[in-house]
């Protein structure tokens, strides 16, 4: 499994390419801005971008989506049927996302936004702005805050402890680190 991180110019947002080494199929997780470095990486590694997974509908995670869709004709997966002016396949908790031979699972992590989703592959989970290293995403009400914490406890912290957590902003982490030391949970 290939996982490559890209730091974008927009709000220091992260974007990730996830790819199957055998089949050379790739997915992009979040698309805050079109980044030519992603294009070059896909080209150099001979990867075909077939899917774009949007964790949530905020511009720093979707701003580059129209350009990626135009260039790669990749299927957009999101918790909404339309995002950043692009038609999307609406996915929900428990849905499978195949990238070559890799099988990802959609996890609901609402709170930061109502449609917020995470995407888990064996050993890796992409959480967007639901969970950060040592922090959580901002919410607009106490109800949303509790909903977010509950979803993270239920769906992220139950993954194997060594699972790497790749987030929307800032450094990656692991389930072991966050479940043990994240100040919002302990």
């Amino acid at each position: 499994m290939i996982v490559r991180h890209f730091l974008l110019d927009v709000h220091e947002a992260n974007s990730f390419v996830v790819a199957c080494e055998e089949d050379r199929e790739a997915a992009l997780v979040d698309a805050g801005a079109f980044d030519s470095a992603v294009d070059e990486f896909l080209h150099d590694e001979k990867l075909r971008l077939v899917k774009i997974f949007i964790t949530h509908d905020h511009f720093d995670h979707t701003g580059g989506l129209p350009e990626y869709v135009k260039r790669f004709k990749a299927e957009v997966l999101c918790g909404l049927s339309e995002v950043a002016g692009c038609t999307a396949t609406r996915v929900k908790h428990g849905d499978r996302v195949n990238v070559g031979r890799l099988i990802g699972t959609v996890l609901e992590t609402p709170g930061h936004t109502p449609e917020g989703l995470s995407l888990a592959f064996p050993g890796h989970v992409f959480t967007g702005d639901a969970l950060f290293a040592g922090s959580v995403g901002g919410t607009s009400s106490e109800r949303d805050r509790l909903r977010q914490l509950d979803a993270i406890r239920k769906h992220i912290f139950t993954l194997p402890p060594q699972t790497e957590i790749h987030v929307g902003h800032g450094p990656s982490s692991t389930v072991a680190i966050e479940s043990r030391f994240n100040p919002f949970f302990v």
């Binding site: 290293a133 450094p171 990656s172 982490s173 043990r180 030391f181």
Partner: peptide, 14 residues
Amino acid sequence: NMRDAQLEFAVLGA
């Protein structure tokens, strides 16, 4: 000794 090391985005948690 990690003087002057490049640790951007490194995970040193725990």
